[in-house]
Design a protein around this nucleic acid. Structure first.
Length: 393
RNA sequence: GUGGGUAUAGCGUAGCUGGUUAACGCGUCAGUUUGUGGCACUGAAGACCGAGAGUUCGAAUCUCUCUACCCACC
């Protein structure tokens, strides 16, 4: 049997609001794996690895990552959550000892649309790896996440696609609420078991409702009544709707989210999206954009977005971002990185991912400093637009 | 020296029983990427078809000459 290393006595789910500027919040979220300074960007390592060859050690030592995000569905398919349980949980498995948030697999209901069937009890998938049939419902998702022993588990939801009919969105939301109730029941049971690696595992509920104000608000009201949730997420955004619609939905839902719990905008987004969402009261973010874009040679700088493979950098001796002090920018020129991309060297992706993650993590640091010093509004005015424009120099 | 073969974008090839703006891959250039199945996807530029002559309404395509390269035999 597995030796329990985490006490079940302490209450770790503490969100402390340090400062507020308008709707924007500067906070601190205490977890069993350490305290998270918010607003925070979680670095996406779907299969217990940041794509591009960044290890947990790099993340912790150099890249200022506070929280790593892993995916329930992917890890269930491979290597199997039972394997990770036997290996002592995700933290031990990947040698990452700060907080981990596991996504529930709900998003894969949406993104693997061609390979699934949704029913009341849960979702039938065909595995993207070997095609075998997989069933996942709220209980399965909670059991898997309990085996993974993440710090924060996400509720199993349906991410409604955009556009969607009002009637379908409504039925889907109601089902997602019922699923959340089942998640809570199952997680309570799992956290009480002697064999559970992390009995302090927390659950975040997820708000849905497509782009319909009434559904969003109604759903938020329903799920916030479920007191067990340690935080709440807004899901189903940045899936094709215009940016101003996304901001509008956040503005509509935010007043109904508990002020004493963290708010997490799932899957978002660009640096500008993040600044705008912090401005509207969001505390947690995650997005594949910094890592995926980096692998495709798009890097973020303080003065805008650059395509590192462009010819104009052929003889450029400057680092990607002259104002950045990440390991990549401290050591390598644009000319060299462009060459690595053109030559299809793995190192190109690694250096660029390293830079982009550092950029996102330090962007959040700068947002927190601005909030600490009461000048977030000014920060937003300076950077919100600039960071999402193409770099010209 | 004789016989045979090949010459089409930067590279490798398709088209060659003659018929509209010569196709494809790689490379080049540019762009996309929002709770990551797929290190992926989209687009653009670029050759007047080895050179010259001929047949024909019309030639990358047929004929002749030349040049270069490859193979075989002397």
């Amino acid at each position: 049997m597995f030796m329990r290393t985490i006490s079940r006595r302490n209450n770790y789910h503490m969100f402390r609001l340090i400062k507020q500027e308008g709707a924007a919040r500067r906070g601190e979220f205490t977890t069993v794996h350490g305290t998270i300074q918010t607003p925070v960007f979680m670095n996406v390592g779907t299969s217990a690895a940041i794509k591009g060859g960044i290890s947990s050690i790099d993340l912790a030592d150099e890249l200022k990552c506070q929280v790593e995000l892993c995916n329930t569905y992917h890890l269930h398919v491979r290597p199997g959550d039972d394997i990770i349980y036997k290996m002592g949980g995700l933290h031990k498995f990947m040698n990452w000892h700060r907080p981990i948030l596991t996504d529930s697999g709900g998003f894969q209901v949406f993104s693997l649309a061609k390979l699934r069937r949704i029913k009341e009890e849960g979702v039938y998938f065909n595995s993207h790896v070997d095609g075998r049939k997989i069933f996942m419902g709220p209980e399965e998702s909670m059991r898997i996440q309990s085996n993974l022993a993440s710090t924060i588990a996400m509720a199993f939801d349906e991410c409604v696609e955009n556009p969607a009919e009002h009637s379908y969105s409504k039925r889907s939301c109601e089902r997602t609420t019922r699923w959340l109730e089942r998640c809570v029941t199952e997680m309570k049971r799992l956290n009480s078991l002697e064999t559970t690696i992390n009995p302090q595992q927390m659950l975040f509920g997820i708000n849905q409702g497509c782009t319909y104000d009434d559904l969003r608000v109604e759903h938020m009201k329903r799920i916030r009544e479920i007191d067990y949730c340690a935080g709440f997420a807004i899901g189903g955004l940045a899936v094709g709707e215009p940016t101003d619609v996304m901001y509008h939905v956040i503005e509509k839902v935010e007043p109904y989210m508990p002020a004493d719990k963290p708010r997490y905008l799932m899957g978002v987004g660009t640096p500008s999206n993040i600044i705008e969402a912090v401005y509207r009261g969001v505390d947690f973010f995650d997005c594949v954009m910094p890592s995926r874009n980096a692998r495709h040679a798009t890097v973020f700088t303080r003065n805008g977005i650059m395509h590192a493979h462009n010819k104009q950098y052929e003889l450029d001796e400057r680092p990607l971002d002259p104002e950045c002090d990440c390991p990549t920018c401290r050591n390598f020129s644009r000319a060299y990185i462009r060459h690595l991309f053109k030559s299809n060297e793995q190192l190109a992706g690694r250096l660029a991912v390293q830079h982009n993650l550092y950029f996102y993590n330090t962007l959040m640091e700068r947002i927190r400093e601005a909030l600490d010093e009461g000048r977030f509004e000014q920060f937003r005015n300076t950077y919100s637009e600039r960071l999402s424009k193409k770099l010209i120099d």
